[in-house]
């Protein structure tokens, strides 16, 4: 009797498997025959009821049935899976994909991060100081005498006689040196303010990165080495540069670093005012008077310092023609970077 059932199942399966034209139908077949309650599985339960003599024979037949069905099932499954990609239903693959919203860091932040990364790799720490500063830190301790024309170099927003908005990040130099003994090797990024008219080339606030290294054997030659290495990493290794004497009250000797104008390649253009050079930073050896204010022995210690404006660097690097774009926060601008 079992024989008959086996044949019947076999025939029915042959018919079903032939008609199965999708993986969904195939899954129905699997449930019908091979799952826990499938007809083939249930037949094995009936094997228990068979007599001792019948058992081996029937067992063999049942195994053959199961193997045959499983095999045909698998080969059909493989076939269907292969043809799934060329499915009959129409898929328009040209429909647009999900719109993913990307955030962005401000281009000035990204520029600053790149600068920080270079100096951190050279062993510089990162320090901060307040934007609302005292006259002492912003000017006096940096060797700007009261009533000296050097103070005119930086148009200042005052809060009152004693407090002001810092005009440069250099006051952080004083704060850092007050807090520790040499060796000091640090950069000090931050926002500064200048009471200057707002137009395409100047704004009342911008960001600077200050650098300071004080130790027993620091030289001007090492300052040049460090800044040249920075500039080559940031602007490219083929860059040409020059150091030009300049004046800052808190460094002596003082210099400005120029690089070849990368807009015109040094030939002279509107951006470099026909000089072929672009000024990128100011620097120099820490003036001994500054060391006096922080109680460093200027016979024992020598230091260098430098400072650069981030906006200017980003304007040049990305070919942005109006500094005000940085502060408008037009998303069509922000999202480009």
């Amino acid at each position: 009797m079992l024989d008959e059932i086996i044949n019947q199942i076999q025939n029915e399966f042959e018919k079903d498997i032939l008609e199965a034209d999708s993986l969904k139908k195939l899954e129905e077949i699997r449930i019908k025959y091979l799952a826990r309650n499938g007809s083939v599985t249930l037949l094995f339960d009936k094997l228990k009821e068979a007599s001792k003599e019948e058992k081996p024979v029937l067992g063999k037949k049942l195994n053959e049935l199961r193997n045959s069905i499983t095999e045909k099932f698998n080969s059909k499954k493989e076939l269907l899976e292969k043809s799934e990609t060329s499915a009959k239903e129409f898929i328009d693959l040209t429909l647009p994909g999900k719109k993913v919203k990307l955030g962005s860091k401000h281009i000035l932040t990204q520029t600053l991060e790149e600068i920080k990364q270079i100096f951190k790799s050279m062993g510089f720490s990162v320090f901060e100081g307040p934007e609302l500063e005292s006259d002492y830190y912003n000017f006096e301790a940096l060797n700007f005498p009261e009533d000296h024309p050097a103070r005119d170099m930086q148009d200042t927003f005052f809060i009152n006689q004693k407090f002001l908005l810092r005009t440069h990040t250099s006051p952080v130099q004083i704060r850092v040196m007050e807090s520790m003994l040499p060796p000091v090797r640090a950069i000090m990024p931050g926002r500064v303010y200048r009471n200057e008219a707002i137009n395409a080339r100047s704004y009342c606030t911008f960001q600077q990165v200050e650098g300071l290294y004080v130790d027993t054997d620091v030289t001007f030659a090492e300052l040049k080495g460090t800044l040249v290495s920075f500039a080559k990493q940031f602007y490219g290794s083929s860059l040409k540069y020059r150091f030009r004497p300049s004046f800052f009250p808190f460094t002596e000797p003082s210099a400005e670093m120029d690089i070849t104008c990368f807009i015109c390649n040094g030939k002279g253009c509107r951006i470099c005012k026909n000089s072929g050079w672009l000024e990128i930073l100011g620097c120099g050896m820490v003036d001994p008077n500054v060391f006096k204010y922080v109680n460093y022995d200027s016979e024992k210690y020598v230091g260098y310092a430098f400072g650069m404006g981030i906006e200017r660097i980003a304007l040049l690097k990305y070919g942005i023609n109006d500094i005000r774009l940085f502060f408008e926060n037009d998303l069509r601008f922000l999202k480009q970077f």
Partner: peptide, 12 residues
Amino acid sequence: SLGFSEMINNPL
């Protein structure tokens, strides 16, 4: 990374 774009506004 949450999808925000960074602004820098004039602190004055």
